[in-house]
Design a protein around this nucleic acid. Structure first.
Lengths: 236, 236
DNA sequence: CGAAGTTTTGATCAAATTCAAGAGTAGTGG
DNA sequence: CCACTACTCTTGAATTTGATCAAAACTTCG
């Protein structure tokens, strides 16, 4: 395992289309080192609020380990708009725009915390960085669109299958199919899928009883029947 | 009305938060003029495919009038991931990434067509342009997230109300509430809302019979009961 | 071990899907 | 200008699916 050399922004290289599902580092050694200087390591325990929509945003975060949930806040029942994983960056666009997400640790989280002003200065000095930013934004955009495609599905078990396949994709160490881990709790998954916890539970049961998946425990799922699974997912 | 001076990229300025719902021009006169030189005007009739996912992308488009629908293509029933309006840019990110959208004219469309290579060259020469690009991407991202929030709603009439309010926001000439126009057909709206045409029709009927909206014809809706309307929408 | 919190399961109810048939709207050509 | 056709939109009845509410099983953690 690599030694953590400072903040890491991971993304799929858009200019290497057939890449083997791996995300790679967008920042050069120099940038990482410079960011490391202005960053501090922070920890959040599960369920802890990281920041609320509308709060004055003075820092951005870069996840080292754990999963963060971004909530779509605006009254009503809380929906999760995205799960953020190690290598993701968040809290950045607040100064200008989308201040309508509240973030909360979905599991225990370790992250780098970087003051916005310092980042801004760095961006001014390294114009290449905004190419990285554009790449990252494109990736987030695609993710949001996939999420919308997921939510457009009507059958709960289909939504779950798509979610599992996204999870698998993110975790794909190197192609080989393995056990999928679901670090977040059921309520969070339900909030992401636009379902109630009850419906989600039944969806798990449906896929399990059809021998499409099997779960070792609440946080580990294996795909048994790849063909059936793919057939469910490919419908999007 | 301003004389069309070439391609226009319209967006909400992220650094002027409380802006009066108006979108403004991201390109300077110089850029517009330069883009105009490499652009040709093209027309598509309603329903015509503009490009298919996976096709070699050699040009980007900038809408002058009409509405384009971007489909999430990957087998299955076709879902519309976004409606593109005058001032929007599309077909740009294909060379690298999100090649999984097929676009189709939802109404008759007039657009500028710009070869990608020329745009790339222009971008290299005007580094300021990628700030505009970042702004535009952020806006698209927000749109995609709003769309996801919409789809997370369970009641069809709520989804419709949110859609209407988005439409109204886009058309807001200057604050004053007016008739909302829905240029696209019902099937397209249903595909965007993740509903069947039947469910959408019933949703219209529900809102109409509750005297929340009334429609002059298939393409023109007025909001009668603002309070009730806002109450529905604010739930997101 | 016990208590607080999650997750599953059960029964009822409401809402959207499906499929099919019936109004309504263009758009075309006589 | 009207009539005809093709199409889109609405409506209806039966079915499926998820929501809701509440209680029971299971985890976690002190």
């Amino acid at each position: 395992m690599k030694h953590p050399a400072g903040p890491a922004i991971l993304a799929i290289d858009p200019w290497a289309p057939g890449s083997p599902s791996g995300r790679h580092q967008l920042l050069g050694e120099t940038e990482r080192a410079q960011l490391a200087k202005i960053a501090t390591v922070v920890r959040f325990e599960k369920g802890h609020k990281i920041y609320e929509a509308g709060e004055p945003a003075d820092a951005a975060f870069n996840i080292v380990s754990g999963v963060v949930a971004a909530y779509w806040s605006q009254g009503g029942p809380e929906h999760i708009i995205s799960f953020l994983h190690p290598g993701d960056l968040f809290g950045l666009s607040e100064e200008g725009r989308y201040a309508n997400t509240t973030t909360r640790a979905a599991t225990a989280v370790t992250a780098y915390r970087m003051p916005l002003r310092a980042i801004t200065r760095l961006l001014e000095r390294h114009p290449d960085l905004d190419v990285s930013l554009i790449i990252k934004l494109c990736e987030e955009l695609r993710e949001a669109q996939r999420h919308a495609a997921l939510l457009a599905q009507k059958r709960a078990s289909t939504r779950l299958a798509i979610f599992l396949s996204l999870q698998e994709h993110i975790q794909a160490s190197d192609g080989q199919p393995a056990e999928i881990s679901l670090p977040m709790d059921r309520a969070s998954i339900a909030a992401y899928l636009g379902l109630t916890a009850a419906a989600l539970s039944r969806a798990f049961r449906t896929l399990t009883s059809k021998r499409i998946i099997s779960s070792r425990d609440l946080h580990h799922v294996t795909i048994l029947d790849r063909d059936a699974f793919v057939k469910l997912v490919e419908q999007i």
